[in-house]
Design a protein around this nucleic acid. Structure first.
Lengths: 124, 124
DNA sequence: TTACATCTACGAAAATCTTCGTAACAAACG
DNA sequence: CGTTTGTTACGAAGATTTTCGTAGATGTAA
């Protein structure tokens, strides 16, 4: 799966990943809460995403119910790989360090990361 | 500085960050090593980057010497912030964990990350 | 029934990014 | 001197993404 959602498409996927299946109307109202956008703009985007396979849909009366056609993890991994490549020249560690150095993480998250480090070392 | 270089622009910046100031010819040959591209394509890109402030340039005889107009760290940080926002809903920790899950780091890098974790905990 | 609201489909404009052909100019070469 | 080579400038075509207007269909209310 090397589909690469655009930023606009990602916003739509985020809604569906978080809230589950929904209509164009629901997605549109979610988007409209944070940005200007016409209803048909959202509709068209979702139609195109459906053509690309990013969304699946089923008929429900006279409207459609859309579902994410790609998983959140898989998509994030694809985008992450690409991002590491283009922005950090392939060095995931540099990305991690820059991210840690400039963002706040909770104690639980830090513990989680440390545990991951241990797992990685033990499993090779 | 909220300039957002495109992927093509990043490739040019990478050359200049790594090799220092250079001509269109030098950048073009660097790019041509890994992808198809006409000389005037590279030229045009660099002219536009100059207009945007991404590159600075000085006359040198009949050609121009270009220099990166933005720092590597600053640019990576800007792109990282944006990427965390759009792809990981603002959770840097999730990005870090997903990046680590990919097992792409060496032992030295893992040690470095662990040290960073310690520093973060000690400094709050 | 008629008018209105809501939905899909679709074409096309707008915006952005990428690519390249052509012109103009100057240096180097024969 | 004239020709070739290497450079910038510039316009425009292509590609992709985003936006939206309009038409057609169907349900809903008066």
């Amino acid at each position: 799966m090397s589909l690469k959602p655009t930023d606009s498409e990602l916003e739509i996927l985020h809604y569906l990943w978080k809230e589950g299946p929904g209509t164009v109307r629901q997605v549109h109202e979610y988007l409209a809460a944070t940005k200007e956008a016409g209803y048909t703009t959202t509709l068209k985007l979702m139609q195109i995403m459906h053509e690309k396979g990013l969304l699946q849909r089923s008929e429900e009366g006279r409207s459609h119910i859309y579902t994410a056609g790609v998983s959140e993890e898989e998509t994030q991994q694809t985008l992450l790989d690409r991002f590491v490549e283009t922005t950090f020249r392939g060095s995931a560690a540099r990305l991690v360090m820059q991210a840690l150095g400039n963002h706040k993480a909770s104690q639980e998250e830090l513990d989680e990361i440390r545990k991951l480090l241990n797992d990685i070392e033990n499993n090779r």
